[in-house]
Computed example of a mutant assay.
Amino acid sequence: MGLQEVWFILVAVLFTGYFVLEGFDFGVGMNLPVLGRGEHGPERRSAMMKSIGPVWDGNEVWLITAGGALFAAFPDWYATLFSGFYLPLLLILLALIVRVVAIEWRGKVDTAQWRGWCDRGIIFGSWVPAILWGVAFANIVRGVPIDADKQYVGGFFNLLNPYALLGGATTAIVFALHGAVFLALKTDGPLRADAVALAKRLSIPALVVAGAFAVWTQLAHGTGWTWIVLAVAALALVIVVAMTFAAREGWAFVFTTVAIASTIALLFGSLFPDVMPSTLDPAWSLTIHNASSGQYTLTIMTWAAAFLTPIVMLYQGWTYWVFRKRITVAGEREPVAV
């Protein structure tokens, strides 16, 4: 295995960490209108934001690291991706900025109107990336019009094909489920009961939508060994349904994590050795070899990653351990039906 293969796997791992960790952050924001209503709605929404308060910004670092790794290890992939997918990636960036500002400033002014506008920003900044990340990665796997000069020559609406839209629906519903399960794991009392109920309602549609996307991916783009990954993802989703109905949110969270990680493995496994297939001519596709940096750059990056990655992961794991206690909503006595 050469360094190009190593860094392809590392980029996949970094995006997996981002979608697993930031996925439940998005899910919490997406579920604000559902779980944050009723007589104690304001207190509920504050408790929901407290559940991710110590970790959400650390979770976003995975995206920054993945983007940096992509730029340094596969500069041609980075350049073609960010120029060809400029509009959807810009929308993701703007949504993330709105979300960051809303989270950071939510507690700066103690009025219901201010918190309401911030909550709208959080909801918007959670739904838009949750959908568009699925659209983007589905298009990467499907292939896009790339010419001999490694330039994307399609338009924005070329990205809105049925497969990509199903990918967007998959990430949206799976992240919403992941967030509901996380809230069931991190909260107590009526809010936890309602999060469990919401997870039950989302689990079967998530199984259907994500299962359809995974099967389409395998049949259209998969290889022999990715059938195993597909089976793992499908089994994980089935177990999630069972665990949500059994109110075993700890195991449900484990298996939503497995389902997300398996789906990313399916996408990257179906892509390899390409990094952006060309629908105009396979010879014009970007691969791990013709889109990568030089050997010296990859060697230096590998040593740096080997030293720094364990430190970062240990620190982030310690953060989750410190803030592991459940959160309750003061004054709430009876569950609010969802």
Rank of each mutant, 00 (worst) to 15 (best):
V174D: 08
I140P: 01
A172M: 12
A246G: 09
A12W: 02
Q218L: 14
F82E: 02
A72F: 08
L230K: 05
W56M: 09
D57W: 09
P33D: 11
Y163T: 01
P88A: 11
G107D: 12
F213K: 00
G58C: 07
L93F: 13
A47M: 00
A242D: 06
P54M: 14
T263H: 10
G167I: 03
A305F: 14
A252S: 07
W7I: 06
W62A: 11
V98G: 13
L93Q: 00
A236D: 06
F175I: 01
W227S: 05
R115M: 03
A234K: 01
A199H: 08
V208P: 01
E39S: 14
G41K: 00
A69C: 09
P42H: 04
Y78G: 15
F156T: 04
W284T: 04
Q316E: 14
T170K: 05
V20M: 03
A130H: 07
L235M: 13
S293D: 11
A184N: 05
V196K: 09
V238M: 11
L219C: 03
P282C: 10
K325G: 14
G27L: 06
A233E: 13
A180K: 00
I260Q: 08
G331S: 05
Y320K: 00
A220D: 14
L81D: 10
F137H: 01
G317H: 08
A242R: 12
R115K: 14
G53W: 11
Q316L: 14
A199K: 05
A305I: 10
G155F: 08
G58W: 08
I9V: 15
Q295E: 15
Q316P: 05
R99L: 04
V209I: 14
C118N: 10
A283L: 07
A261L: 05
L165K: 07
I140V: 15
V174C: 13
A210I: 01
Y78A: 14
V11N: 11
V215F: 12
G211M: 02
V240S: 13
T279F: 02
R120T: 07
S285Q: 06
V322N: 06
L160W: 06
F255G: 08
V13C: 12
R142Y: 00
I300A: 11
G53F: 06
D110A: 12
I131C: 11
A112F: 00
H289F: 12
V174W: 10
V128Q: 02
S285V: 09
W318E: 02
